[in-house]
Amino acid sequence: MTIAVERPTQLKPFTFEEFLAQYGDDDRYELIDGEIFDLEATGPHEEVAAFIDRKLNVQIDHSELPYFIPQRCLIKPLGDWTGLRPDLVVLDKTQLSAEPLWPKEAIITLGHSVKLVVEVVSSNWQNDYARKVDEYAILGIPEYWIVDYAALGGLEFIGRPKQPTLTICILGNDGYYEKQRLRGDDRICSSIFPSLNLTAAQVLSTGSGC
């Protein structure tokens, strides 16, 4: 579940610095255009995220890649009004020396530090399918997964009839994501983890109790 947090005592939006001071140590909140969203997740949501985390960590270990999945990470796009907390982010250790904030805070500001982001869709699905697509593409993050296990997204994003869908976004040379909708036995073709042997159904059914 994703809920916008009200700010009754101040009408103006939160800046990133204000957000960091008040909510920086709590990974259940993120900031989008000055508005704070509560990322309190359901149990199935967490099951899906944990399943993906486990599968990708196996790939990292097996291929001895210089990547890791942090327990907590905040991505700060350009500007002063947004700070995103992906459900899962794969970072490149070799790039972190260039990150100005990383030595003291788990904050990423440079897209080349990120290999992959995953968002497990919740009630505020518009952010995952629209705003975050733009932000991650502008940062140059090469791969973005949108995991809609409960088929919450709009028809323009998951089609008709609505059904659980995994959307794989691969960044093209033009700076825009090329999107592929996966369902059922469709195999996930990852540009970051080419040896990954995983189908959409294996990921999406994790949150259905099947």
Rank of each mutant, 00 (worst) to 15 (best):
residue 9 T to W: 11
residue 10 Q to F: 11
residue 22 Q to C: 08
residue 24 G to L: 09
residue 24 G to P: 14
residue 26 D to N: 13
residue 28 R to Q: 14
residue 29 Y to L: 14
residue 31 L to M: 05
residue 33 D to R: 11
residue 34 G to A: 13
residue 36 I to Q: 14
residue 38 D to Q: 11
residue 39 L to H: 09
residue 43 G to R: 08
residue 44 P to F: 04
residue 45 H to G: 15
residue 47 E to Q: 15
residue 48 V to Q: 02
residue 51 F to A: 13
residue 52 I to F: 00
residue 53 D to E: 06
residue 57 N to S: 05
residue 57 N to H: 13
residue 57 N to W: 05
residue 60 I to W: 04
residue 65 L to K: 04
residue 67 Y to A: 00
residue 67 Y to F: 05
residue 68 F to K: 01
residue 70 P to M: 13
residue 73 C to K: 04
residue 80 D to Y: 11
residue 81 W to R: 05
residue 82 T to D: 09
residue 82 T to H: 06
residue 84 L to C: 07
residue 87 D to S: 13
residue 89 V to Q: 02
residue 91 L to N: 01
residue 91 L to F: 04
residue 93 K to P: 05
residue 96 L to P: 02
residue 103 P to V: 11
residue 103 P to S: 15
residue 107 I to R: 13
residue 111 G to P: 08
residue 114 V to N: 03
residue 118 V to T: 03
residue 125 W to C: 04
residue 126 Q to F: 11
residue 126 Q to E: 12
residue 129 Y to P: 02
residue 132 K to R: 04
residue 134 D to E: 10
residue 143 E to D: 05
residue 144 Y to L: 08
residue 145 W to V: 00
residue 149 Y to N: 03
residue 150 A to R: 03
residue 150 A to L: 09
residue 158 I to R: 01
residue 161 P to R: 07
residue 161 P to L: 05
residue 173 N to V: 12
residue 176 Y to K: 15
residue 178 E to R: 15
residue 179 K to F: 04
residue 179 K to V: 03
residue 180 Q to H: 12
residue 180 Q to P: 02
residue 181 R to C: 11
residue 183 R to W: 15
residue 185 D to E: 13
residue 186 D to P: 01
residue 191 S to E: 13
residue 194 P to G: 12
residue 195 S to A: 15
residue 199 T to Q: 01
residue 199 T to C: 01
residue 200 A to W: 00
residue 202 Q to N: 15
residue 203 V to I: 10
residue 204 L to E: 00
residue 204 L to F: 02
residue 208 S to T: 06
residue 210 C to N: 11
